[in-house]
């Protein structure tokens, strides 16, 4: 009866640990808020520096808050045509890559989730393995490939490379979402006279909404934030994505314009941060669903 003994004495100890837990909880909360401040600090510092007049940045002690905020640095960037051209290029590359990736990922996810076929297991393993290939181990040959096709520094060229980055992971995520929609729903619709195609589009597809948003946002982030491939492929041209454009601030021989580069970073980061905070919950869930369900 050894196993039941602790249970007999459990009520008092249980209550004790409860109150101890509540006392501890206070300290955990304090620790968590401190960690949150620490983690968000670089982002705060970026915005703080962007709002300060350039000459105030070169003062000691540093100003911890923008007491006399100015939008001058932002104004200078918004008046710079290279910024707008880079924004356009980034938007075009990202848009094309995400659109193509989503269409292909839906097709692949349906095939892998709804069908049994010869090579399915191999395809699933391939989806996993392909994600393990580091882009950094391929960019030499990707550079040569695009160079050979005359696509260096072009929207389709860079988009193609981004599709390769995005598709494997989005297939993995979307498959989890498709698995989550019971196939019986489609079958019921087909009983009622829907074609198989119609059943998928009228029943399953609308239910995939959150999954499509999550994977779409994931693709957007990868393409929008990506630096390595853009840097390699765009090195020689004058067409830049925004991350590569940020590098132009410090590659000059003169001293870095810190207020300007902070304002630029803020402009690149803020839209991403807003989108991400709005949808991150769905994304984490999708990732875990994929990992747990296989």
């Amino acid at each position: 009866m050894a196993a039941t003994e602790p249970a007999l004495f459990a009520p008092p100890t249980h209550a004790d640990t409860r109150s101890a837990r509540n006392r501890h909880k206070h300290w955990w909360n304090v620790l968590a808020v401190a960690l949150a401040a620490l983690w968000a600090f670089p982002i705060y510092w970026m915005i703080n520096s962007a709002l300060m007049p350039a000459e105030r940045l070169r003062s000691t002690p540093p100003l911890l808050a923008p007491l006399e905020p100015t939008l001058r640095s932002f104004g200078e960037i918004l008046g710079d045509s290279l910024f707008w051209r880079s924004l356009g290029f980034s938007a075009a590359v990202t848009g094309l890559a995400v659109a193509i990736s989503l269409v292909s990922a839906v097709l692949a996810a349906v095939a892998l989730s709804r069908f049994t076929f010869f090579g399915r297991r191999g395809a699933l393993v391939a989806v996993l393995v392909v994600q393990m290939i580091p882009a950094e181990a391929l960019f030499i040959s990707q550079y040569r490939m695009l160079d050979g096709w005359g696509l260096l520094g072009s929207v389709p060229g860079l988009s193609l490379l981004y599709v390769g980055l995005i598709v494997p992971f989005t297939v993995w995520m979307l498959k989890g979402f498709v698995d989550g929609v019971p196939v019986e729903l489609e079958e019921a619709a087909m009983m009622d006279g829907c074609s198989r195609f119609g059943a998928f589009f009228r029943v399953t597809f609308p239910l995939l909404g959150p999954g499509l948003v999550a994977t779409g946002v994931f693709g957007f982030l990868v393409a929008w934030n990506e630096f390595t491939l853009a840097y390699v492929v765009l090195a020689s041209g004058d067409r830049l994505t925004l991350p590569v454009w940020l590098r132009t601030f410090s590659s000059n021989l003169q001293e870095t314009d810190w207020a300007g580069v902070m304002a630029g970073s803020t402009l690149v980061a803020v839209p991403v941060l807003i989108v991400f905070v709005l949808v991150q919950n769905a994304m984490t869930k999708g990732m875990v669903a994929g990992a747990v369900k296989g």
């Binding site: 960690l35 970026m46 590569v244 991403v272 905070v277």
Partner: peptide, 12 residues
């Protein structure tokens, strides 16, 4: 705070 750090473009 964590989500913000996650989403932050690496270059920024």
């Amino acid at each position: 705070a964590l989500v913000l750090a996650w989403a932050m473009p690496p270059l920024a």
